[in-house]
Computed example of a mutant assay.
Amino acid sequence: MDRRESLRTLVMGGMASSFFLSSCVTDKESPIEEGDIIEEKQGYGRTPAEIERDEDLMSETFFTEEEMAIITSLADIIIPEDEESVSATEAGVPEFIEFIVKDIPEHQLPMRGGLMWLNRESSKQFNMPFVETSKENQLKIIDQIAYPQDFEKTSPGPTFFRRIKNLVVTGYFTSEPGIEYLDYRGNTPNVWDGVPEQVLKKHGLKYEEDFLKVAMDPANRGEVMNWDDYEI
């Protein structure tokens, strides 16, 4: 099983539920009034206060260019491109992580510290920063902290890797390409063909023919039924 399929299995199996993140800000003193929800181009409803906060966070920058370069490399190591879907970077995962650490500040210190540690470890082992060393050398370090049985027990590397892996998985599988890869359908209604015939016969009931022609016509399944036209 490859890396991407392993992550997909975790998500679909429900084992990754703790990965998914929510905003750390709640405003209990400002209840949402009817009509406050605004449908944004991103495809989800936001209140005016939430929109303003999102814009404020997006106008700020937390990671340096060097840090973002490391995050980009790590994201594509964790979820690379394959024949079925795009890489984490193409799905916008580095930008997602940049937003999340501003939205949930508790990630900031561990993430920045972990990126610094990764650069130091790369310099220690290969005499150059992480993004400048070869892909082979990058993978050697990642293997050490992803499977740390023989790595230094006091090293912060494995803890950092778990954090960024969770962020990458969350960002990818909540992106449009990630959701498409999971084949997640959401609240898609099933096709209902009415009460089974044997159940109707058991209770001495049957559908009116005129009702069947309208309500059970496959061509009308996308329309909203006007029940006032029928006696129930």
Rank of each mutant, 00 (worst) to 15 (best):
residue 49 A to V: 02
residue 203 H to A: 05
residue 44 Y to S: 13
residue 87 S to A: 07
residue 180 E to D: 11
residue 232 I to G: 09
residue 221 R to I: 13
residue 55 E to L: 13
residue 112 R to V: 15
residue 181 Y to W: 11
residue 98 E to W: 00
residue 80 P to L: 04
residue 2 D to F: 00
residue 150 D to G: 10
residue 124 K to V: 02
residue 216 M to A: 13
residue 51 I to K: 09
residue 10 L to W: 09
residue 49 A to L: 09
residue 217 D to T: 09
residue 134 S to P: 06
residue 34 E to W: 09
residue 93 V to E: 00
residue 96 F to H: 06
residue 9 T to H: 14
residue 121 E to R: 07
residue 203 H to W: 08
residue 56 D to M: 12
residue 48 P to V: 03
residue 50 E to T: 02
residue 67 E to Y: 01
residue 67 E to K: 04
residue 164 I to M: 05
residue 179 I to F: 02
residue 2 D to T: 13
residue 135 K to M: 10
residue 42 Q to C: 11
residue 40 E to C: 15
residue 77 I to R: 00
residue 2 D to P: 09
residue 36 D to I: 03
residue 38 I to E: 06
residue 223 E to C: 15
residue 172 Y to S: 00
residue 77 I to K: 00
residue 76 D to T: 06
residue 185 R to S: 15
residue 64 T to W: 00
residue 164 I to K: 06
residue 230 Y to C: 06
residue 115 L to F: 04
residue 159 T to I: 05
residue 75 A to C: 10
residue 88 A to W: 01
residue 114 G to K: 02
residue 129 P to R: 12
residue 113 G to F: 08
residue 130 F to L: 03
residue 229 D to Q: 10
residue 12 M to A: 14
residue 90 E to W: 06
residue 113 G to R: 04
residue 138 Q to C: 05
residue 116 M to G: 02
residue 142 I to V: 09
residue 151 F to N: 07
residue 78 I to S: 00
residue 44 Y to Q: 13
residue 99 F to H: 10
residue 154 T to A: 05
residue 146 A to K: 05
residue 90 E to A: 09
residue 160 F to S: 00
residue 76 D to H: 01
residue 198 Q to K: 14
residue 231 E to F: 15
residue 102 K to S: 10
residue 97 I to A: 02
residue 13 G to N: 03
residue 3 R to M: 03
residue 225 M to H: 07
residue 29 E to Y: 14
residue 5 E to S: 05
residue 89 T to Q: 05
residue 118 L to C: 00
residue 55 E to W: 07
residue 98 E to H: 01
residue 82 D to M: 08
residue 116 M to R: 07
residue 9 T to I: 07
residue 27 D to K: 13
residue 160 F to C: 03
residue 216 M to R: 15
residue 140 K to M: 12
residue 82 D to F: 03
residue 131 V to I: 12
residue 42 Q to D: 15
residue 102 K to N: 12
residue 226 N to V: 04
residue 215 A to H: 11
residue 126 F to D: 05
residue 124 K to M: 07
residue 158 P to W: 03
residue 151 F to E: 12
residue 178 G to I: 05
residue 161 F to G: 08
residue 74 L to K: 00
residue 107 H to T: 07
residue 131 V to H: 00
residue 99 F to T: 09
residue 39 E to V: 12
residue 79 I to E: 00
residue 95 E to V: 12
residue 116 M to S: 02
residue 218 P to R: 07
residue 48 P to D: 04
residue 198 Q to R: 11
residue 92 G to N: 01
residue 61 T to S: 15
residue 15 M to R: 14
residue 162 R to I: 01
residue 185 R to G: 12
residue 174 T to R: 04
residue 178 G to D: 04
residue 104 I to F: 03
residue 106 E to R: 13
residue 16 A to T: 14
